[in-house]
Amino acid sequence: MPTTKTLREGSAAKRAAILSAARELFLADGFDRSSVDAVAARAGVSKRTVYDYFGDKRTLLLAVVDTVGQSLISTIRRTLDDTLAGLSGAAGAEDRLEDVLVTFSMRIATDMLGSAEYATLQRLVRAESGHLPRRGYNSMAETPDEALAEQFAALGEAGLLDVPDPRLAADQFIALTFGVAMDRLGSANAVEDARVRPLVVEGVRTFLRAYRTRAASA
């Protein structure tokens, strides 16, 4: 079980060094074979500091997974800001909607699903599932859907989409784009597989046939 002791916030630099060292060791040697002594030595801190900051090795693993997840969430939010966030008030938004949704999807498929951070998260979750709170534990499981739902709600208010349930629309968008690629190809990594883009484009078009307003379709 994770520790219940009071942990120190401590130095941000030391915390980052411990997380980086633990991540490298967990990936290279596995959780069971990576000792707290080895983490401390690689991070350049004392063993006591590791325990003071994280309490125990399992809590440290969760912190590593959560930190990687938060980095990916930042990528998703940045991509949403760069693509969908300004669309609702833009001139010609109706005509650009499909292209912007495809651009967003392809940016996620390259910047996130093709990133070292995403590969790290997948490797840790698969390899160390027995040490995580539940099988398939993923610290970012809900956030991407919710962030996308917020943007769909804004597009609905702007009259571009008809989305009575933005969260359901977000879930269905992801299923039609990345989900189809994962089911068909075993991956949605557009960096490695050129077949991802046609699936994403068709998924966006299917989504718009269901959710585009009549006015935007006209």
Rank of each mutant, 00 (worst) to 15 (best):
A216Q: 01
Y118E: 06
L27D: 04
L168G: 02
G156Y: 04
V125K: 12
A13S: 03
V125R: 14
P133W: 09
D171H: 14
E94V: 08
G30E: 02
D95G: 15
D145N: 11
R33S: 15
A22S: 09
R78I: 06
R212F: 01
H131C: 11
A170N: 08
F31P: 11
V64L: 11
T3A: 06
E157D: 07
T6L: 12
N138M: 09
E192Q: 05
A190V: 05
A85V: 05
A90C: 11
A85Y: 07
A175C: 11
S88T: 07
F54E: 02
G55V: 02
A28I: 03
Y51L: 11
L199I: 11
P166K: 09
R195C: 12
I73W: 04
A127V: 07
D37P: 07
A188R: 01
R195Y: 04
L60C: 10
Q172T: 14
S115N: 07
G44Q: 00
S71L: 01
A154H: 04
L60N: 05
S217F: 00
P144D: 04
I108F: 10
L27I: 13
I76K: 03
M112G: 15
M140K: 13
L7E: 00
G92C: 09
T67Y: 00
D37H: 12
V36I: 14
M182H: 11
G10K: 10
R135A: 12
N138A: 14
A38V: 01
R23Y: 02
Q151F: 08
M112C: 15
D81C: 09
A175L: 13
G130S: 08
A170P: 15
G69Y: 01
A28D: 06
L155S: 12
L101R: 11
D81E: 04
P164Q: 03
G10M: 07
L19A: 08
E192Y: 02
R15L: 03
A119W: 03
D111E: 14
V204K: 05
E94I: 01
G86V: 03
R167V: 14
V50F: 09
A17D: 00
D32L: 13
S34T: 14
T6V: 12
L113N: 13
D165K: 05
T110H: 13
